[in-house]
Design a protein around this nucleic acid. Structure first.
Length: 879
DNA sequence: TGGACCTAAGCG
DNA sequence: GCTTAGGTCCAT
């Protein structure tokens, strides 16, 4: 498929409904990927498109197809006039599940790219693109057996006249007629119509008069409500009204209403307005004066909310300089990737908004990705305020129905901007002009389940096919992205070609200063006898804010500090019996839970190991900080934000609104308080313990620490009042903490690149992680070692092929190393042991194919021995 | 020799 | 992934 600039896909989309190929023969064959995520079915199967469905089927259609003995959901990935299969062997597509194909040819192609790049089944990639509401649901239905003559049960053929038990053969005939008329009936509907037919049905199924068939259903239907409208002109209505008996007051009122308001109105609204019952309306409808019909409506999560319209703000010099290149890229409809490096509070959002505006003015569409937790009402408001109803919002806190409806608006061309988390990158637009990824360094853009895609890479892939621009925005760009701007290409990081263009915004708007940052050495505090979790500096600062009625944000980085239960006598830590990790203490239920397998057990009263009673939960949970705050500052109003307080739908928003309205002095929380929040009266930010992430066994630990500290520090002093930040730490000299306190990204970058280069980590190479799991360790060792050997061998052979056309002086060409197998950082999950090996390879080399092939050699073992092999290309988490 | 059980193949 | 055909093994 040629990519010919911007309009290419719009045309393709239109013509995808039965494009004709070769001599104008109609495309009667469809290539379908079926809903079976298995290696042997990971290819298209040919089906006949029946005449009557031909107008409804396009590339990207969801269909129900017979597959073996059952009916499955599938996606049409191709249409053709010919098929290699013998015509007699082909089956027909049974049903089309959507009026409009939910995917388009570009997305179908993207799924193919994903399955190759991220090593997953194509169906898995396709399913990731549609909302949960459309995931297949299979329903057993009863149909009349498809055969010329049915066995007449009234004449028993097999000895004993058992069928005589069912004397009501008339009922049998009635059932057959009923089912035949409806073509297929669910068991419930059947029992509704023939209440006591249970045993008879069973018999008819055994006899073969009736058969069970499977159909594909959606999990959810579009919401429909009843609308009422007049069936005649106003004059006629009044005429009818006069013909009513004088006591039919209600009916008259309704007719009078419609004579003045002829537009359709929801039945519920009408009954409320005129205080009439549904019966009254029904009566009028039966007389033929009114019409009642169902209409599809959207479940609008923001229904009734008014968003104040905003107009573009005048740009600062540096915003203008950042926008200009994006703008000219849009003008030319060229594919470019921009890395917008702007300090917190530099006004990145306004740049996004104006770029989107331009994109919309061109008649193209835009996608905005934000990390799940920063998709706050505040954020939504800014986009809805500027673009109104043209915006669809998609995030996990919507109900399945709401999400489905927001998504439908895209296909129905009701919206041209989508703002959402990771999966919104698949918004089925046909004419994309711009994709924005805010906080591009966030690890939540990487999906940890299959398909293990990175939204940033998928976005760039999509944009390149549309001639669209991509803007990656961050105050703390990931090293991978920064390296791709070519800033450090001299020492080999990233590609020489510098595929991304760097745009910098170094100052906050209106020249507001970045907050002053104090690093507090907790070791010193301890030495001087302060055993509290608040240093004296932070204590004084909080006290001061309380006094001045300003607000404080406190960050408790819970990772590594999660609440585990330990015995103070012997040091025993309660662990999961099936997974090698500590159980987490949940205060609400007073139980111990396993984060990995979901096991839940009561909190131990005495130590299981030494019987001591000195067993208690450890870790500075947010509750403990809250308690301590209460003790130190009596009367302080604290809002706590963590998994416990934000699990309920909408609670996240409620808490933030309360804080915004100054109903609290302190906002205390985990990572979720670090991102994107913007409150004018926050002048103090405290980090309780900065090094919790730093010591995790992850090569990105320093980067994550720097990002988190910079982000949270950016919450202070964003408006008129100046801000101040306290970072409490046991390692005050670590470069990630020192550079974060100086708001010095460049200094951090230089330090970190040095480390990465020395140790051979991204951006100096790329990684792939292969994890093996099995119930027995020896099997893992054997399989793992054999895998590594095969992989190395495979590389050796492929290298000889490619080296010929590469420069012999470029030593990095051959860079390919495999480490392991070694036990995973979490050595056991759900009673399965885990080993992993890590592959390091040169940036830009495609190792996916090699990994797929190598894994294929283990098919036998996978099937027979229940070995599991999981491949993660460019993993974010090395566990 | 019949039946329970297992495995590998095939699904259009 | 699920079903089924065909092969294996054992008890009758």
């Amino acid at each position: 498929m040629a990519k010919d600039g911007a309009s290419g896909y719009a045309d393709l989309y239109e013509s995808s409904l039965l494009p004709l190929d070769e001599g104008n023969e109609p495309n009667v064959y469809a290539q379908v990927i079926v809903d079976v995520p298995a290696k042997q079915t990971n290819r298209p199967f040919d089906y006949v498109v029946p005449e009557e469905l031909r107008a409804w089927i396009g590339i990207g259609s969801r269909v129900g197809v017979p597959f073996g003995p059952r009916t499955l959901q599938g996606f049409v990935v191709g249409l053709s006039a010919k098929s290699d299969m013998a015509a007699g062997k082909l089956k027909k597509i049974e049903q089309v599940l959507d009026l409009v194909p939910p995917l388009n040819p570009e997305l179908v192609q993207l799924a193919d790219w994903m399955s190759r790049t991220y090593v997953c089944h194509e169906i898995t990639a396709l399913q990731a693109m549609i909302p949960g509401a459309l995931k297949a649901k299979y329903e057993k239905m009863i149909a009349v057996a498809d055969r010329p003559e049915r066995i007449d049960s009234r004449q028993p053929s097999d000895g004993e006249g058992q069928t005589m038990l069912f004397a009501g053969s008339a009922e049998e005939d009635a059932i057959v007629a009923f089912v035949r008329q409806k073509s297929a009936v669910s068991t419930e509907a059947m029992l509704n119509r023939f209440p006591d037919s249970g045993p008879l049905l069973k018999h008819m199924l055994e006899q073969g008069t009736l058969v069970e068939v499977q159909t594909v259903k959606d999990r959810l239907q579009a919401k429909r409500i009843l609308y009422v409208e007049p069936a005649a002109e106003a004059e006629a209505l009044l005429e009818h009204s006069r013909s009513l008996p004088s006591n039919a007051k209600r009916q008259m009122e309704v007719l009078a209403y419609f004579s003045e308001n002829p537009e359709p109105v929801p039945l519920s609204e009408l009954s409320e307005k005129l205080n009439v019952g549904a019966g009254t309306v029904k009566g009028l409808a039966e007389k033929g004066w009114l019409t009642v019909r169902e209409r599809e409506v959207f479940r609008d999560p923001y229904e009734g909310r008014k968003f104040d319209r905003t107009s573009p703000l005048p740009l600062t010099e540096q915003q203008r300089e950042a926008l200009d290149p994006i703008s000219s890229s849009l003008d030319k409809k060229e594919h470019n990737v921009f890395l917008l490096h702007g300090v917190t509070g530099s006004g990145k959002t306004e740049v996004y908004l104006q770029a989107i505006q331009q994109c919309l003015d061109q008649g193209r569409e835009a996608i905005v990705l934000v990390p799940e937790i920063s998709l706050t009402p505040q954020m939504v408001e800014r986009f809805k305020g500027r673009f109104g109803d043209a915006v669809a919002v998609m995030h996990s806190r919507l109900s399945q129905g709401e999400r489905y409806d927001e998504w439908r608006k895209i296909g129905l061309k009701r919206v041209s901007v989508v703002i959402g988390a990771r999966s919104a990158v698949f918004a089925p637009f046909a004419n994309l002009g711009l994709i924005i990824i805010d906080e591009e360094h966030e690890s939540s853009y990487k999906q940890e389940e299959s398909p293990k895609y990175h939204a940033r890479d998928v976005a760039i892939q999509r944009a390149s096919r549309h001639g669209a621009a991509v803007v990656l925005g961050s105050a703390t760009p990931s090293l991978e992205s920064f390296a791709r701007t070519g800033m450090r290409s001299s020492d080999g990081a990233g590609n020489e070609a510098a595929p991304y263009r760097l745009l910098t915004m170094a100052d906050r708007v209106e020249g507001r200063p970045l907050p002053a940052v104090h690093i507090v050495d907790l070791r010193e505090e301890l030495k001087e006898g302060n055993r509290s979790m608040f240093s004296r500096g932070l204590y004084k600062a909080i006290e001061e804010r309380l006094h001045k009625k300003e607000q404080t944000v406190l960050l408790l980085n819970r990772r590594g500090y999660s609440t585990f239960v330990m015995c103070r006598s012997c040091g025993f830590v309660v662990q999961c019996p099936h997974c090698d990790i500590s159980l987490t203490y949940h205060q609400v239920s007073r139980s111990m839970r396993c984060h990995y397998c979901g096991l839940s057990q009561p909190e131990p009263k005495t130590c299981p190991s030494c019987d001591s009673e000195h067993i208690r939960y450890f870790g500075t949970g947010t509750q403990r900080v809250e308690e301590e705050l209460g003790k130190l500052f009596p009367g302080i109003r604290v809002i706590r934000m963590d998994v416990d307080t934000t699990s309920e739908k909408g609670s996240h928003e409620r808490l933030l609104t309360r804080f915004r309205n100054k109903q609290a002095d302190v906002l205390l929380g985990t990572q979720m308080v670090a991102k994107g929040l913007d409150f004018p009266d926050v002048t103090l930010v405290g980090v309780i313990a900065a090094d919790t992430v730093l010591h995790l066994p992850d090569f990105r630990a320093a980067e994550k620490t720097f990002q988190l500290l910079t982000q949270v520090a950016g919450r202070a002093g964003r408006h008129k009042l100046p801000g101040e930040v306290f970072i409490q730490t046991y390692t005050p000299d670590h470069y990630s903490i020192v550079t974060a306190s100086g708001h010095d990204y460049k200094a951090f970058l230089d330090n970190e690149l040095e480390m990465r280069k020395m140790r051979g980590y991204p951006p100096y190479c790329e990684l792939a992680l292969v994890t093996f799991s099995h119930e027995q360790v020896p099997m893992l060792v054997r399989a793992g070692e054999s895998f590594v050997a095969r992989l190395k061998d495979s590389w050796q052979r492929s290298r000889h092929k490619t080296e010929a056309d590469r420069s012999p002086y470029d030593a990095s060409t051959s860079y390919f190393e495999v480490y392991g197998p070694v036990a995973s950082p979490i050595p056991r999950i759900k009673d399965r042991y885990r080993f992993q090996c890590m592959v390091k390879y040169r940036v830009g080399v495609d190792v996916s194919g090699m990994l797929t092939e190598t894994a294929a050699a283990f098919d036998e073992t996978v099937r027979q021995e229940k070995l599991l092999i999981s491949i993660d290309v460019n993993p974010q988490v090395l566990m």
